[in-house]
Computed example of a mutant assay.
Amino acid sequence: MSECRWQKSSYSVEGSNCLYVAAGESDTIMLRESEYPEVILSTTRTHLRTFIRAAKAGQFDHIGEPGR
């Protein structure tokens, strides 16, 4: 696989842990976090879009709540 061109998320601020995104081969999107750059998650554009829409809709707001 060729070298990735990582782009920092526009929501990341200076001095904090940042999310980086890169386009992979075919329909693959790769994600990594600046604190652990060797850990790379990959998904498809469709799955990432679905996840982001669900998060914006609050479908994961209950995660981490006691008793759930």
Rank of each mutant, 00 (worst) to 15 (best):
S2I: 08
H47F: 12
K56L: 15
I40S: 05
Q7S: 11
E33F: 01
R32G: 07
A22G: 05
P66A: 14
Y36E: 04
T46F: 04
H62F: 14
C4I: 11
K8W: 00
S10N: 01
V13G: 02
I52V: 15
P66L: 15
C18T: 06
L41V: 00
T50S: 08
R5N: 08
K56A: 15
Y36N: 04
K56F: 08
A22P: 09
T28Y: 12
S10K: 01
D27M: 06
W6Y: 10
E38W: 11
R45L: 15
S34P: 11
L41T: 02
S12F: 05
F60L: 07
M1L: 15
D27E: 10
D61M: 04
T28W: 07
W6I: 00
M1Q: 14
V39P: 03
R45G: 09
M1S: 10
L31W: 02
T50M: 04
S26W: 10
E33T: 01
T44V: 11
S16T: 05
V13C: 02
C18A: 10
R53G: 06
T46Y: 05
P37S: 12
L31M: 01
Y20C: 11
I40Q: 07
E38A: 09
T44Y: 13
I52F: 12
S10Q: 02
S12N: 04
T28F: 06
Y20S: 11
G64P: 09
E14Y: 01
R53S: 08
C18G: 06
L41A: 06
V13R: 01
I63Q: 08
G64Y: 11
K56D: 15
V13M: 00
S9K: 02
V21I: 07
L19V: 13
V39G: 06
E38K: 13
G67K: 15
C4S: 08
C18W: 13
G24N: 06
S42Q: 12
H47S: 15
T28C: 08
